[in-house]
Simulated scan of single mutants.
Amino acid sequence: AAAFPPPRPRGARAPPPRRGLSPDPPPATALFHERGFDATSLSDIAVRLGITKAGLYRHVTSRAELLRAVTGPVRAEVQALLAANPAGAGRPLDGLTGLLRGLAGAVAADPERHAVFWGVHGVPSRDPLDHACRASLVRGLEDLLERAVARGDVRDDIAPRLAARLLVGAVVGAVVGAVTGPVTGPDGLRDAAGPPMSPRAVDVLLDGPVRSLTGGRS
């Protein structure tokens, strides 16, 4: 038999339809990046969108819902990078560099969204899904580093977990900083964007940490 939704209590209103607005409006990404999540209200986002706060509530229920929509594409990118560079396959150093170069490219393509996710300009997103995703990337890099150490491809005097965190911070911080410029001032407004980072510059950025870990060996 077909399943039907339970009847609404007498006098209860149907929820308003959610249509006409992207679940991830660009102003939300921009404001979370410029001011930080905690300093951005739904009223701020509504003003930037040119609608009332009540109008915004027709499409979203909370800032947390907007944050999860803003960072969702980053989670998908990280999961795809981990799937493309598994720790248990091939030469671990190739997987390590592939994962880091892929991360740098993803950050450069959408730096504001990644800044909100990683917290380059403040605290990282506290969404539980984002926290788990960041942890999975660190674990993936840690596994690759441990395998590289076991093969003698990477020096063993830096703890793999610490090295993984340092590499993520170096890649994300350098790429976001080069593309968007610094965030300054108590209001969190951005300075003018810096020059785009070329593919060659990304290679140089990644080559430094990897070579420093490998003792100069490629």
Rank of each mutant, 00 (worst) to 15 (best):
Leu96Tyr: 06
Leu129Thr: 11
Val123Asp: 15
His121Phe: 08
Ala135Lys: 13
Gly72Trp: 02
Ala104Arg: 10
Thr61Ala: 14
Ala84Pro: 09
Leu103Cys: 08
His114Gly: 06
Val60Tyr: 07
Ala109Asp: 11
Arg63Pro: 02
Gly119Ser: 07
Pro128Ile: 08
Gly88Ala: 13
His131Thr: 13
Val138Gln: 11
Ala109Trp: 00
Asp130Pro: 01
Glu65Tyr: 03
Thr61Asp: 15
Tyr57Thr: 03
Ala69Asn: 05
Gly98Val: 09
Gly90Thr: 08
Arg68Ile: 10
Leu67Met: 08
Leu93Ser: 14
Ala132Gly: 12
Arg58Val: 03
Arg58Ser: 15
Gly95Leu: 01
Tyr57Glu: 02
Arg101Gly: 14
Leu82Val: 06
His131Gly: 13
Gly88Thr: 13
Leu81Met: 07
Trp118Gly: 10
Glu77Ser: 15
Ala108Thr: 01
Arg91Glu: 11
Ser125Asp: 09
Ser125Met: 00
Leu96Ala: 10
Gly98Leu: 10
Val116Phe: 04
Asp94Cys: 12
Val78Phe: 02
Leu137Lys: 13
Pro73Leu: 08
Pro111His: 05
Arg113Ser: 13
Val116Met: 08
Val116Glu: 03
Phe117Gly: 04
Gly102Gln: 14
Ala64Arg: 12
Leu66Asn: 02
Leu66Tyr: 05
Gly95Ser: 11
Val107Thr: 10
Arg63Met: 04
Gly90Trp: 04
Ala87Ile: 12
Leu81Asn: 00
Gly88Lys: 01
Ala87Ser: 14
Ala64Tyr: 11
Leu103Lys: 14
Leu99Val: 14
Leu93Cys: 12
Tyr57Gln: 02
Leu67Cys: 10
Ala132Ser: 13
Cys133His: 03
Gly119Glu: 01
Asp127Arg: 04
Leu82Trp: 00
Tyr57Leu: 00
Ser136Arg: 09
Gly102Val: 11
Ala76Trp: 01
Gly72Lys: 09
Ala104Leu: 07
Pro124Ile: 15
Leu81Ala: 10
Leu100Ile: 14
Leu99Cys: 14
